[in-house]
């Protein structure tokens, strides 16, 4: 039996499907105000998914990968929300957990969600450190994941998902080289 007496990391997906701002409700409750909603006013619309973008190298047993974020572009567009605390030039300190962004995607159906998630994971870019983004893209491609039926053994049962190619598309490669030149010249 577990009851977690706190706000959870993954609270945004619930906010996306219900439209309730959980943090604002927390504050109102602490102020002694009654709940703004009755149970019958809460409905659940579409599906939402959160990807934990961790500063880790999935190919190296998820070893933490702290350091300077040379470039960061947040994902955007319809149904896409990024909760993060990183920015271009930020030095990710090694003393804390490796979570650097939460990519939250919403869509009206499960099938749409899978497509939008794939688009958003290509949309977000974090340079300078290794992240779990390519691993998430592999999970999305897995038919077992797409079927929507899985249990806590999924990751262990799919060890092949870390065997993705690290070859970057030319556009990304150009951006990395440009960032390196800028860093080197101190521009």
């Amino acid at each position: 039996m577990e009851m977690n007496t706190r706000l959870q990391v993954e609270h945004p997906i619930t906010e996306e499907i219900t439209g309730v701002d959980i943090v604002q409700e927390q504050i109102r409750i602490a102020a002694g105000l009654p709940l703004r909603y009755k149970q019958e006013e809460i409905s659940c619309r579409g599906f939402a998914m959160e990807f934990r973008i961790n500063a880790e190298d999935p190919k190296n047993d998820f070893l933490p990968s702290f350091g300077r974020i040379t470039r960061y572009f947040a994902a955007g567009g319809p149904g896409t929300r990024t909760d993060s605390a990183i920015y271009t030039g930020y030095n990710l300190p090694p003393y804390y957990d490796s979570l650097c962004a939460k990519l939250v995607v919403w869509a009206p159906t499960w099938e749409d969600l899978l497509k939008r998630a794939n688009r958003a994971l290509h949309d977000i870019s974090v340079y300078g450190i290794k992240t779990t983004i390519p691993y998430h893209l592999e999970i999305l491609k897995s038919p077992d994941f797409q079927s929507g039926s899985f249990d806590t053994s999924f990751v262990e049962d799919h060890p092949d998902l870390v065997n993705y190619s690290v070859r970057r598309p030319p556009r990304e490669l150009a951006a990395v080289i440009a960032a390196a030149i800028v860093a080197h010249r101190g521009l």
């Binding site: 993954e10 997906i13 619930t14 996306e16 499907i17 659940c44 599906f47 939402a48 998914m49 959160e50 990807f51 934990r52 499960w110 779990t132 691993y135 998430h136 999970i139 929507g148 039926s149 990751v155």
Partner: peptide, 8 residues
């Protein structure tokens, strides 16, 4: 790693 709401 990934969380989904509601559960599919």
């Amino acid at each position: 790693l990934i969380e989904i709401a509601p559960s599919p």
